[in-house]
Design a protein around this nucleic acid. Structure first.
Length: 804
RNA sequence: GCGGGUAUGGCGAAAUAGGUAGACGCAAGGGACUUAAAAUCCCUCGGGGGCGACUCCGUGCCGGUUCGAGUCCGGCUACCCGCACCA
């Protein structure tokens, strides 16, 4: 044995052994119990791996390695989510094909991941930009199209007035273009959409059947945002038209004092002759078009709006004529694009009414202050007033009664609404999956035939979007102009590509059968491997990627393509790794840590141990070089255990209880995301080993097995040095006996009036009477001359005396 | 703005189900070894007071429930994440 642990020679050595022996390949032996562990596949950026990546990867590598030791057939795959904007922008700037850029980045990422010693099954690597992969992404799109879930509509995009290109939200900084600084406006564009809203209820209900951490479920539920209310028709004065609003509070209908329409509402165009201040309205609408939905609702505090002079509405319950305003906080994309405003009982309406001096009428009583001074939104306590036939009812009763009334009169009906919006699926970009649709003047949108897939990305001369905001593909006349598969007439290909979310919405299915060129994956393999048993990923993917992939999966289930309703049985999330200054790591802040440097100086096992020890797994943590060093010191102490090991195939007597406790602790902590305390327990045990002076081979063996999932290289090397049989990755996970986890004596805390006044040691089986008697001795001076009113005894823990 | 989180020593953090706050690690101070340093090993380490047995205070802030609150309840404050074309 070498005197010191030399990671430079040991780590690559074992990585090669694992590769050569195909140590971590999932087998197709479907008779074995399976375990599918999944981490989010990375976007192979030009910067290479970031120290944030190894955190979730190491966590599930630990789980995977432990599962294999527990006898499971484990699938733990890795791949590349390689389409995307930064690669395309790099390609534009440097005139290099994105394919080449991607290939280089992937090679770098793969080498980096390899050097950390992950137990990925590299035989199942997938890449979303590979035509053999996106063949099936396009195939799923065709299924969606044929099921009526893909449609085209006019949607606004961010448009740079100077570059003449569509921009991603991220490329818009404070309303101007990130590259040139010119103002960005919203421009209408015909876009492909996916009807995720049709799956809103299924996605909501599915959450009840899966084991996701609670905040992920809550965030998805709120994102879907189901609310039940009513749609109500208000007559437009002097016309045959009605203005339909959506409200969650139909009970407050008698308190509506004005209406607000979205600035984009079609009635504005329709009745522009009636609106006497139309110029002002148009100006306001232009200003609103410069703001994103986010800004429009963000600026809600300082309400803006314009009253439509000449256009009013009639409240259907009391025939009152009320004014109509337009304001940007009302969005065309939610509800009906118009609201009735009840300022007494809605915060935004109240602020708006105060600003523009509009009447505020109380219709729910129960507030401490008059509603002209403070908005009253309590729905549990209040009773209806000033509301005709609703007076005296509770809010819930009134909701029911008014909805029945509206339905009876034919002026409204109960309505469920969702905050969730349909998924904008078009990008005017090159580096994405081509949308396999042909547009024919005669036949409309015609899908490609399945046998014509994959529709490969053609080579183009420039990756720059066209002047009118079209994708670079639009310039490829020979590719664009085709004959209609339906009528044989002249037709044009769709030139938009899919968003990056497309490839990542189903990648976990492809790992199951990655080389199948007949189907997306074989039914037999899907039945065996699904669902994913444990999926860990960033909290930032909760509402988009996670929801999108659940949507696709549920759709595929409805089509009979996959055997489970839900793709992921369990979902957990990790916290971000921040720079040592507590800020997000970024080049500009100069606080970026490259994992390669850590591996070079301290080794992969140190990196892995530190990333797991850094803090609570689900919380953000600051990087610390000193902390890295501490973990390396721990591994050095592990290495040096070889110097104090003596023969013996049983646990040392003095260490036996500690070892059993540690097996229990580590086995549990590795399952519950508490990697930091699991490692702390191993550190505590090694401290006990050194205190004992010498340990048996059995002591060492168990310690090595427990540490192996975290630090696989050093443990494999010690295992070989000590002549233990086979490889650690083939060994069995250690077991503990509950009976051997308990000490003979317990320490009892003694409190007087809840304050700690002393402790004593006693046989753990001693009676309650003995414990209380010993407790009285322990705090004799504190309770002397006082009356004991109550004795509280918590077995094995404490005694508390309540005295007078 | 809306939705979701988080707050404990000098620092990263622990604390099954309301029961000894600060495990484990880092930094710091002292000691051993060394010509010296590094490495390693040993000891101390929340704050105040006391020579001392001890004692008071302490888990973001204000209040409550309880024999007992970091943990439960009500009300705040600060910070972090997401907000649909970054991934």
């Amino acid at each position: 044995m070498a005197a010191v642990y030399d990671h430079h020679s040991v780590e690559p050595k074992w990585q090669k052994v694992w590769d050569d022996e195909k140590a971590f390949a999932a087998t197709n032996d479907f008779s074995k119990p399976k375990y599918y562990a999944l981490v989010e596949f990375p976007y192979p950026s030009g910067q290479g791996l970031h120290v944030g990546h190894p955190r979730p990867y190491t966590a599930l590598d630990i789980v995977s390695r432990k599962r294999r030791m527990q006898g499971y057939n484990v699938l733990f795959p890795m791949g590349w989510d390689a389409f995307g904007l930064p690669t395309e922008n790099y390609a534009i700037k440097n005139k290099i094909h994105p394919k080449i850029v991607t290939k280089n980045n992937v090679a770098r990422f793969k080498e980096q991941l390899h050097s950390i010693g992950y137990s990925f099954d590299w035989d199942r690597e997938v890449n979303t930009t590979d035509p053999g992969y996106y063949h099936w992404t396009q195939w799923i799109f065709l299924k969606l199209f044929n099921a009526g879930l893909a449609y085209k509509t006019q949607m606004p995009i961010n448009w740079c007035t100077s570059c003449k290109v569509g921009l991603a939200n991220e490329e818009v900084v404070n309303g101007v273009c990130e590259r040139c600084g010119a103002p960005v406006v919203r421009k209408m564009q015909s876009q492909w959409m996916l009807k995720i809203t049709e799956y809103a209820d299924k996605l909501l209900e599915g959450l009840d059947s899966v084991d996701y951490i609670e905040r992920v479920k809550t965030q998805q539920r709120n994102w879907i945002g189901r609310s039940t209310g009513a749609e109500v028709d208000f007559k437009l004065t002097g016309t045959d038209d009605k203005l339909t609003v959506y409200t969650t509070r139909p009970d407050t209908l008698f308190g509506a004092t004005y209406m607000v329409m979205s600035p984009e509402h079609p009635y504005i165009e329709k009745y522009k002759d009636r609106i006497t201040n139309y110029d002002e309205v148009v100006k306001y609408r232009e200003e609103a078009s410069r703001k994103s939905d986010f800004e429009r609702t963000e600026l809600a505090k300082d309400k803006t709006g314009v009253c439509l002079n000449g256009l009013t509405a009639i409240d259907p319950v009391n025939d009152k004529e009320i004014p109509i305003w337009i304001s940007d906080y009302v969005l065309m994309s939610y509800g009906t694009g118009a609201i009735m405003a009840v300022p007494a009982h809605d915060e935004r309406d109240w602020e708006f009414a105060k600003k523009f001096n509009l009447p505020i009428i109380e219709v729910v009583a129960g507030s401490d202050k008059p509603v002209t001074e403070q908005v009253y939104t309590d729905v549990a306590e209040g009773k209806l007033v000033n509301s005709g036939f609703l007076d005296g009812l509770s809010v819930a009763e009134a909701k029911k009664k008014i909805t029945e009334f509206l339905e009876e009169k034919g002026i409204g009906h109960a309505k469920t609404n969702y905050k969730l919006r349909d998924w904008v699926f078009s990008r005017q970009r090159y580096w994405g999956e081509p949308i396999p649709i042909i547009h024919c003047e005669k036949c409309g949108y015609v899908p490609l035939k399945e046998e014509d897939l994959p529709l490969e990305l053609p080579e183009v001369e420039s990756y720059m979007p066209g002047d009118n905001g079209e994708s670079p593909l639009a310039a490829m006349d020979s590719w664009v102009n085709v004959t209609c598969p339906c009528c044989g007439g002249p037709a044009k290909r769709e030139t938009d590509t899919m968003p990056q979310w497309a490839g990542s919405s189903w990648y976990f299915l492809r790992y199951i059968d990655p080389t199948n060129d007949k189907e997306l994956a074989s039914q037999e393999a899907l039945k065996y491997w699904l669902p994913v048993d444990w999926y860990n990923g960033g909290m930032e993917h909760t509402t988009l990627h996670l929801l999108y992939s659940r949507f696709w999966h549920r759709f595929l289930y409805d089509q009979g393509i996959v055997p489970t309703k839900e793709p992921y049985a369990k979902r957990t999330s990790h916290g971000m790794i921040l720079g040592s200054n507590g800020e997000k790591m970024s080049k500009s802040r100069g606080n970026v840590v490259n994992p390669d440097d850590i591996i070079e100086e301290y080794g992969a096992d140190t990196l892995r141990t530190y990333e797991m020890f850094i803090g609570a797994f689900d919380q953000a943590a600051n990087w610390s070089m000193e902390g890295v060093q501490g973990c390396r010191r721990f591994l050095d102490r592990v290495w040096k255990l070889q110097a104090i090991v003596t023969d013996g195939d049983e646990y040392s007597k003095d260490l036996e209880v500690k070892i059993h406790q540690t097996i229990r602790k580590v086995s549990g902590d590795f399952e519950t995301l508490k990697y930091n305390t699991g490692i702390a327990a191993l550190m505590a045990l090694i401290n006990d080993f050194y205190k004992a002076g010498s340990i048996t081979k059995a002591d060492l063996k168990t310690f090595i097995l427990l540490l192996n999932p975290v630090a696989p290289h050093i443990t494999e090397e010690i295992w070989a040095n000590e002549g233990f049989e086979g490889r650690v990755f083939q060994a069995k996970w250690p077991e503990y006996e509950e009976a051997k986890c308990v000490e003979d004596t317990v320490t009892i805390a003694v409190q007087v009036l809840g304050k700690l006044r002393g402790t004593f040691e006693e046989d753990r089986n001693a009676s309650k009477e003995t414990m209380i008697a010993r407790a009285k001795e322990t705090v004799a001076s504190k309770i002397e001359g006082k009356e004991i009113v109550k004795e509280i005894y918590v077995p094995g823990k404490l005694v508390n005396f309540v005295v007078k």
